[in-house]
């Protein structure tokens, strides 16, 4: 059951369940939630119930309606959201849409130690659409003898070395089988030295994992490569 906690300066004035399709808020007594304050319009805003969701809609009020500090005309309400009207705050609380604990609802009563799957629709609520673009990187050979002039780094781990299955295959008698490894993650690439040959990035030797940036110059086992990234 969703409800509104009407507060004034941190003191809870009223605890109002949201039962109707539309709950009106304003200074005049015809409203469901009456806020008798000069800064509040006669009919200031309303809370709409649409299916499972609740929305706050401003009714062209003079001083505006704010949700979590932002002025809104219509906005979905998540549990814990604070609506500011005049000097009063209305805290929206909902069992079904607790943003932080959203997935606890469908799996209540099950031990959290058990493995379980959640519905894709539930996932969307929690994950929101902030997915990053996958990047593709590669090397252009600047100096040295390799089997190709340019390499796209598609695999999770690419070896630079003389090994016959190395992604970037080097020649030369003293070249190590594995000179360095390049790892691909969803959003980045990194390179790690291997064996005795020093690995230099932009002229400086690195001894551990290094996160590659677009344009970095890599020197290892007698070759010089430039790293690039494209979206």
């Amino acid at each position: 059951m969703a409800k509104i906690l009407l507060k004034f300066k941190d003191a809870v004035i009223k605890d109002l369940p949201l039962e109707k399709e539309a709950t009106t808020i304003g200074r005049k007594s015809e409203n469901d939630i009456v806020i008798d304050n000069i800064g509040v319009s006669g009919f200031h805003a309303k809370i709409l119930k649409e299916g499972e969701n609740f929305y706050i809609e401003d009714l062209n009020s003079l001083n505006g309606t704010f949700v979590d500090g932002k002025k809104v005309s219509k906005s979905i309400l998540n549990s814990g959201d604070v609506i500011l009207i005049g000097k009063h705050t209305l805290e929206f609380i909902s069992e079904e849409h607790r943003r932080d604990e959203g997935i606890k609802a469908p799996i209540r009563g099950v031990s959290m130690d058990e493995t379980m799957v959640i519905d894709p629709r539930e996932q969307e609520k929690i994950l929101t659409s902030t997915e990053k673009l996958e990047v593709l990187g590669g090397f252009i050979i600047i100096e040295g003898s390799t089997d190709m002039g340019e390499y796209e780094l598609k695999e999770r781990v690419t070896t630079i070395g003389k090994d016959e299955s190395a992604g970037i295959r080097l020649k030369g008698f003293f070249t190590p089988k594995v000179a360095a490894l390049v790892n691909r993650r969803k959003e980045c690439y990194f390179i790690s030295p291997s064996g005795k040959k020093p690995l230099k990035i932009n002229g400086e030797e690195v001894t551990q994992r290094y996160d590659l940036k677009d344009g970095d110059i890599v020197e290892v086992a007698g070759i010089k490569l430039q790293f690039y990234l494209k979206e």
Binding site: I118, R156, V157, T159, V178, L181, N183, S192, G195
Partner: peptide, 17 residues
């Protein structure tokens, strides 16, 4: 996981929330 040249790398992304 792949273990190569003294490094370990997870080759799969966990499908966990």
């Amino acid at each position: 996981y792949l273990v190569r040249a003294g490094y370990i790398e997870q080759l799969t992304d966990d499908h966990t929330l």
